[in-house]
């Protein structure tokens, strides 16, 4: 059941130009930021090696870029169904709310996996003239997957709150941005709690190639929290008045 909704969601995304355009534009921006890094490395090789000097900063960049992009992808998940009154198709089918929410979530995560796979192809081209630290690259990609999945869960929840996709996009962006800049605030106030709460601080260790269970747990907690909130919100629609 989850698979059915997820695959429909994924195919629906590719029916609209939005998904294609986002893939294309992200790839283009990624390429533009990729080239100068490679160029400067060619002139003056970095002691940390090719992967640490070129690939990791790239993944850092892409996370910032996708902070702006994810809200556009998640905004229509539930809100558009609500506005077009197609949600009742799912609500009156023999499905549970959890299945509906998980289906939507995995649909968008699959899209993000495609995007990450395409982004990882670009550093792979360096193999033509050099060697890569696959362990570090894999960790960066793994961290990015977790980061984006938690973005998506937050976006999904925002999308359950409203009928208007635009509103969902803006609130998602606000929430993500807030979670992101918590880290800046912590630098000023020297507060460990803020660092811990910040969604980006946990990503940085992945970029250094460190697999920290605490960081993985953080992302899983965020994902589960917002998925549960989404389910509760949809149940609340049915019950409340």
């Amino acid at each position: 059941m989850i698979y059915i909704i997820a695959s429909r969601e994924l195919r629906n995304m590719f029916l609209s130009p939005l998904a294609w355009v986002i893939l294309g534009v992200v790839q283009l921006i990624f390429g533009i930021t990729f080239y100068p890094d490679v160029d400067s490395f060619m002139r003056q090789p970095h002691p940390a090696g090719l992967t640490a000097a070129v690939v990791s900063p790239l993944f850092g960049w892409v996370a910032i870029l996708l902070l702006f992009v994810i809200p556009l992808l998640t905004m229509r998940l539930i809100s558009e169904e609500r506005r077009n009154k197609t949600l009742s198709l799912l609500l009156s089918a023999p499905l549970t709310m959890t299945e509906i929410v998980l289906g939507k979530f995995f649909g968008i995560v699959t899209y993000l996996l495609i995007m990450i796979a395409m982004l990882t192809l670009m550093p792979m081209s360096l193999l033509l003239g050099g060697t890569l630290d696959f362990g570090l690259m894999f960790m960066s990609a793994f961290g990015l997957i977790l980061l984006l999945a938690s973005f998506a869960a937050i976006g999904l929840f925002m999308s359950t709150l409203t009928q208007s996709p635009t509103l969902a996009a803006i609130s998602t962006f606000g929430a993500l941005f807030f979670l992101w800049i918590l880290q800046l605030g912590s630098e000023l106030a020297d507060n460990g709690v803020l660092v811990y709460l910040s969604i980006v601080s946990h990503y940085l260790s992945f970029l250094e190639g460190v697999f920290n269970t605490a960081d993985v747990a953080y992302y899983f907690l965020v994902i589960i929290l917002f998925l549960v909130l989404s389910v509760r919100r949809l149940e609340g629609d049915r019950l409340g008045g």
Partner: peptide, 28 residues
Amino acid sequence: IGYLPEQPPVYKELTVDEYLDYCAALNC
């Protein structure tokens, strides 16, 4: 139960066949 709400819950970007296949799958 089969339910047709006041406004038919159809996805305008799908073909009739695609849509009905999806509904069939949703209904197990």
